[in-house]
Simulated assay, not measured.
Amino acid sequence: MLRHWPLLVAALLPCLVLAGIGWWVWPQQPTGRAPHVAAGTVQAQLLGADSVSRLAGTTVVAGPQSDRPHAPLDVAPSECAVAAGPTTEAVYGQAWKAFLSATYQDSAGTGGYTVNQVFGVFPEAEKAGAAFRTLTEGLAKCPSATVAGQAGRSSKWVYTARPSTEVAVAWTAAQEGSAGWACYHQAWVKGTSLVQVSVCQAGDGEATSWKVADELTKKVTG
């Protein structure tokens, strides 16, 4: 098994963006210009690497951040754009006033374990609620999808959503033929914010996603 581990890692790395966490395709904030995210808001609500490590029971380090949602993914069928890219413009649109996506990954830097936190702050609660409904309705209409990747590669994902409430939804995105690789998602709408957490690993990350989600929700103020 250990002899095949490098091959498994190489197969999984291109798939991370397809799960919606987007830490490769989302550009990092370039230097020389002010960030789009309002200073002192969403950044202050982010859980640090030490906190996430404690909740996950493994050491993670800070990875890329983005100050805007990525464009919708290339997916078939097209109505699965939300399920395939829950943190993209397919859900958050362009009406947000502040946005932050931050990814932590395993300390070895292999991409074999990632935790993603996403904040989208809207001008008013109604718009945050509309984005949340877009998310839940998109999940409901897409049990599986094929997502186009880099270098012409594609992958098939199966989406399993839990019953949603008016303010929260949880779901799993599992990649077919990938030795158990899956992303465990949580999303809530709170005030003017739509917040998401995902834990991606080759194993069961649901418990960790709940722990991170619970801790993060306590910090969201708007």
Rank of each mutant, 00 (worst) to 15 (best):
H4A: 14
W5S: 11
W5Q: 14
P6E: 08
L7F: 13
L7N: 13
L7P: 12
L8N: 14
V9S: 09
A10E: 10
A11M: 10
V17S: 13
L18C: 08
W23K: 06
W26V: 08
T31D: 07
G32P: 04
G32D: 00
R33I: 09
V37G: 05
T41K: 15
Q43C: 14
A44W: 07
Q45D: 08
Q45C: 05
L47M: 04
D50K: 01
S53H: 02
S53F: 12
R54Q: 08
L55K: 00
A56F: 00
T59V: 07
A62C: 01
D67L: 01
D67Q: 01
P69L: 09
P77T: 03
P77Q: 02
A84P: 07
A84S: 03
P86L: 03
A90P: 06
Y92F: 15
A98H: 03
F99E: 00
L100G: 02
A102F: 14
Y104C: 00
Y104M: 02
Y104H: 05
D106P: 07
T110M: 11
T114C: 07
Q117I: 09
F119M: 11
P123R: 06
P123H: 07
A125K: 11
K127V: 10
A128Y: 02
A130R: 04
L139W: 04
C142W: 08
C142I: 09
P143C: 10
A148E: 02
A148D: 02
G149Q: 01
Q150D: 12
R153H: 11
S155R: 00
Y159D: 10
R162Y: 12
R162P: 00
S164N: 06
A168G: 04
V169M: 02
A173Y: 09
A174D: 10
E176W: 00
E176R: 08
G177N: 14
S178A: 15
G180F: 07
W181Q: 05
W181G: 09
Y184M: 14
A187G: 02
V189F: 03
G191C: 13
T192C: 07
S193D: 09
S193W: 10
L194E: 05
Q196F: 05
V197H: 06
Q201A: 10
G203P: 09
G203R: 05
G205C: 12
E206H: 15
T208H: 11
T208W: 06
S209E: 13
W210R: 15
W210D: 14
K211M: 15
K211Q: 15
D214M: 04
T217Q: 11
K219T: 08
